[in-house]
Nucleic acid binder design. Structure first.
Length: 268
DNA sequence: ATGGTTGCCAAGCAA
């Protein structure tokens, strides 16, 4: 079985429905994980997205903030929404397809506010707590050699030096602080997760999936960060055939500040 | 060092 999986922090699915349509027509993902849909299920644009070729859609929505949805051409089985660390925010959605043989966890890790100090900034504390809860959950899953899980979404952490435009200048900027990177590393170890995107771009090369709205010209300043990730359990890692970071989407009309990230799988 | 933009929903918060 072959499938193309994409993840995209859409920053309001209702506002950017035309961009989702444009992306899907051009890149034809089979499974699309959206984050920051910023709406409840009742007002999610279900009909147009089904018409776009995704009859199977699961939503974990919230009014105004956060929220994730997973769209699929294949039938999906619900696998629950974890309420990591009990915040009550809609940040996780698990589904399975291929008769339950592939599980996709769509996550939106808290951004963490501006001050990188958990004692001063409750949002940063929440981010660290959330990442610890994810690691505990992942360790608890105790994935076996044959378990095919994908952990994808907006992790809001750029772990490697070349996942940001300037490692030195971002050491105290939330998303690239050593403590967040440590927390993400612990999560990665807890499930033996493989960062499949970085397999295609050497660690000494820059790779970004997000560019701030605040730059006058995102392209020329190119101060990006790699915040969006596709991780798999080892059983799936070698099934990945290629990947793509759809940088052009940052230049589309009224864009999200994140761009889609794609991985192509072939289950031999 | 600072301020820069965007979306929700109609003021200020979250990112």
């Amino acid at each position: 079985m072959k499938f193309r999986l994409a993840t995209w922090n859409i920053n309001s699915v209702r506002l950017r429905l035309p961009l989702v349509e444009r992306f899907v027509r051009a890149y034809r993902p089979d499974v699309l994980c959206l984050q920051e849909i910023k709406c409840v299920e009742e007002v999610f644009p279900l009909i147009p997205l089904q018409a776009l070729g995704f009859p199977h859609i699961r939503i974990n929505g919230q009014a105004g903030y956060h929220g994730v949805a997973t769209l699929s051409r294949f039938p999906l089985e619900a696998r629950g929404n974890e309420n990591f660390c009990g915040s009550g925010q809609a940040r996780h959605l698990a589904v399975a397809f291929d008769g339950g043989r592939v599980v996709v966890h769509n996550i939106y890790v808290p951004a963490g506010g501006d001050i990188p100090d958990p004692d001063e900034n409750p949002k940063f504390k929440h981010k660290l707590t959330y990442l610890r809860a994810l690691a505990d959950w992942s360790a608890c899953c105790a994935f076996g050699d044959q378990d095919r899980h994908i952990l994808t979404g907006d992790f809001n952490v750029a772990p490697l030096e070349n996942d940001v435009w300037s490692h030195k200048q971002l050491l105290k900027v939330v998303s690239h602080t050593p403590i967040e990177v440590e927390h993400l590393a612990r999560l990665q170890k807890s499930g033996n997760w493989v960062d499949v995107i970085r397999r295609y771009v050497p660690e000494d090369e820059k790779l970004y999936t997000w560019w701030s709205y605040r730059a006058r010209d995102w392209q020329s300043s190119n101060r990006g960060r790699r915040l969006d990730h596709i991780w798999t359990t080892p059983a799936l890692a070698d099934a990945v055939q290629s990947m793509l970071v759809v940088e052009e989407a940052r230049g589309w009309q009224q864009p999200s500040d994140h761009v889609p990230v794609i991985a192509d799988f072939d289950l031999a």
